[in-house]
């Protein structure tokens, strides 16, 4: 089977953010992560592109993405003091959206750093 090779992939597991990893992947999973450390290998090899979870859950029941987005927006909009928290295992692009959303909501905004 021919695997797709991605050179200079970036590992975001720890703060080292190594950007010299070579990934060998098929459509569903990564089979090899060359140059990655133990933690990095586990990180890359444990994810799949399979649909393992429902798109979204509302009150524990399966829901569509659109419904979940509406519900999330409504909860946040109705709240007097919403909290936006986390932002470590995500991209800068998503973090910027989070800050903008918190700004608009008049929310509390905090990251993992404060723990």
């Amino acid at each position: 089977m021919d695997l797709k090779v991605i050179d200079n992939a970036t590992c975001t597991f720890c703060g080292c953010v190594c950007d010299d990893i070579q990934l060998h992947a098929d459509e569903n999973r990564i089979h090899q992560a060359k140059k990655a450390c133990v933690l990095g290998k586990a990180w890359f090899l444990n994810h799949t592109a399979e649909r393992k979870y429902p798109d979204a859950l509302i009150d524990g029941k399966e829901a569509t993405l659109d419904e979940a987005i509406e519900a999330a927006a409504e909860h946040l909009y109705q709240a007097d003091m919403p909290l936006v928290y986390g932002m470590s295992n995500t991209t800068c692009e998503a973090q910027r959206e989070c800050v903008e959303m918190a700004d608009h909501l008049g929310a509390l905004l905090d990251s993992h750093t404060s723990l």
Partner: peptide
Amino acid sequence: HGNVTGADVIMRWQT
């Protein structure tokens, strides 16, 4: 932990 530095940097320049 991942991109916690990114969160730090972005919050600093935006806020």
